[in-house]
Simulated scan of single mutants.
Amino acid sequence: MSDIDLLAGILSKTGDLVEGVHPDQLSLPTTCASYDVEALRNHLVGWLQVFRAGCEGRAYEGDPAAHVCGDDPAGEFRTAADGVLAAWRTNGFDRQVRVREGELPARMVFDMTLMEYLGHGWDLAVATGQPVPFTEEEAAEALARAEVTLPPRFRGEGQAFGEIVPVAEDAPAVDRFVGFLGRDPGAARPSAS
């Protein structure tokens, strides 16, 4: 599978999860302590717009943390996803990509995008009681890239990622992936009612 196909599959499945959120689920808790379902959905859409802008070679105007989805969050997500994919196809990987205030190697930004949308896609699925849609191949590839991309200094109290949660080596790749990100894949799912 090509890099673009890998990202396209993950973004498509995450877009389906965004579409699958019901209005009565917006205040449900998620596996991300600082986000309920609505805040997580806003985060997913807001940051995808940041990644799109960077991939297109422009700065994102605004604060992704302040993004609030309109009447069609799934449509917003899919529009941004289409832009991200088109920009990777057009501009390739031999460049620097702006993410907020700084620039990073394109490959690193690409891998961050995979991690962000498979990880938070899992969070959204678990919080809303939707099936986790990611394939073994997608999760295994995201895990391999996360192991190279995510240094220990970003883990722990006050950091973006928790400590690694031990998961059996023969567990499904998505469980090993979310464990690596610091989530417990065996955590009870919040009620979707």
Rank of each mutant, 00 (worst) to 15 (best):
residue 64 P to Q: 13
residue 65 A to C: 05
residue 66 A to N: 03
residue 69 C to W: 01
residue 70 G to N: 03
residue 71 D to F: 00
residue 71 D to H: 04
residue 73 P to A: 00
residue 73 P to N: 00
residue 79 T to Q: 12
residue 83 G to D: 09
residue 84 V to I: 07
residue 84 V to P: 04
residue 90 T to F: 08
residue 91 N to A: 11
residue 92 G to Y: 14
residue 92 G to R: 05
residue 94 D to T: 14
residue 95 R to S: 06
residue 96 Q to C: 08
residue 97 V to G: 08
residue 97 V to F: 10
residue 97 V to M: 12
residue 98 R to W: 15
residue 102 G to M: 15
residue 103 E to T: 15
residue 104 L to C: 02
residue 106 A to T: 04
residue 106 A to P: 02
residue 107 R to D: 13
residue 109 V to M: 13
residue 109 V to Y: 15
residue 113 T to W: 00
residue 113 T to A: 07
residue 114 L to P: 01
residue 116 E to F: 04
residue 117 Y to F: 14
residue 122 W to R: 00
residue 124 L to S: 03
residue 125 A to H: 04
residue 126 V to M: 11
residue 130 Q to S: 10
residue 131 P to N: 03
residue 132 V to R: 05
residue 137 E to A: 12
residue 139 A to D: 13
residue 142 A to W: 11
residue 143 L to W: 09
residue 145 R to T: 07
residue 146 A to K: 02
residue 147 E to G: 04
residue 148 V to A: 14
residue 148 V to E: 15
residue 149 T to C: 10
residue 150 L to H: 09
residue 151 P to N: 01
residue 151 P to E: 06
residue 152 P to M: 04
residue 154 F to V: 07
residue 156 G to H: 05
residue 159 Q to K: 14
residue 159 Q to F: 08
residue 159 Q to A: 12
residue 164 I to C: 10
residue 165 V to W: 05
residue 166 P to I: 07
residue 166 P to H: 08
residue 169 E to M: 05
